[in-house]
Design a protein around this nucleic acid. Structure first.
Lengths: 175, 175
DNA sequence: GCTAAAACTGAATGATAATTCATTATATTA
DNA sequence: TAATATAATGAATTATCATTCAGTTTTAGC
């Protein structure tokens, strides 16, 4: 019964967890975190209210998990690009922007939730600045740094600040 | 007792209304709309909870009025610039950006509330896209259009889209 | 098919906060 | 100044939801 180390039960659990996250993403994108009720998420996911609590600690944990999943996805695809030793910095940056835009375009609701709700609360902002978002920006900063060393980018800008400004802009344009 | 068509009573009423809006702006900028209680606004304004309801229909109406006031202010100052027949389009645009930035810089709390809360809910966004925001963007679009006719701007961009992109960017940079 | 365990449900609970309104304070008028 | 009208108050009411949990259904092993 063990396939690649997973049990069927665990896979089913994972599927339902994803379904809850998807439902919450749609609802929160549409109404915002505070206007979205747990009941509405449950209804959209086709499960009972209480079931949410078998998968998440509380309502806030659902929102946090939406962020986690979004960042996981983008970082997972961004890292190979950054670590590709064949590519120059300008090409890498181009690909990262393409990646970012394609993910934002692919799941508009996810993008809305991350952009709007992340800004909305200093609480979350702090929580995430210290982890995933910083990791992502760090990857971009790495590329900017590579570019400065290769001579293809100017030397007079802080890589992390550049990363922030650039992708703030890209996000803004996308929506 | 009648001066410029206003009665003292009405002026006093207006002053208190403004005080409530100011208090609400500070509180909402700091904690967000949903975390801000009507009691907190009343406390900051130095009045009783119930008094808010003598001036506004409900909590949401206070938020809406903050938007209205902000847009009123900026449109009031932007219109003369746009309608100035002495100025070319590039100068007008420069002045509009200056105006925008100066208002944003002057009242940071107001800017935060408008930017964050307006985005936060499609509900409000729809409410306002159909009125004041559109009016403001329309003014900017007018200038872009003038520039295209004068030949100082390129012909190949939609004025309203340009206006949106430009001021989205300005807002982003400001914060 | 039977049974125990696991998963699920949704009505009940409790907490929070918007709104109301009977009462009190302030202003206006005669 | 007293009478009346207007404005303000804040405790009580009500509405809204996140969360819980006793009871129900589903699943898995035998």
């Amino acid at each position: 019964m063990a396939l690649k180390g997973y049990r069927v039960k665990d896979l089913q659990r994972e599927v339902k967890r994803e379904k809850i996250l998807d439902a919450a993403t749609v609802e929160i994108a549409h109404s915002g975190y505070h206007r979205t009720t747990v009941s509405a998420v449950a209804r959209r996911a086709g499960i009972g209210d209480g079931t949410i609590y078998l998968y998440f600690e509380n309502k806030e944990a659902v929102l946090v998990s939406i962020f986690e999943r979004a960042m996981q996805r983008i970082i997972g695809e961004a890292r190979p690009i950054v670590e590709d030793s064949e590519l120059g910095a300008p090409d890498k940056l181009r690909r990262l922007i393409e990646l970012h835009l394609s993910l934002v375009g692919m799941d508009r609701d996810m993008a809305v939730v991350v952009q709007v709700e992340l800004r909305h609360s200093l609480h979350f902002l702090e929580l995430f600045s210290r982890s995933r978002v910083r990791e992502y920006l760090g990857l971009i900063a790495e590329v900017v740094d590579q570019g400065r060393n290769e001579g293809s980018f100017r030397k007079d800008a802080d890589p992390l600040f550049t990363a922030k400004a650039l992708f703030g802009l890209v996000d803004e344009m996308a929506t």
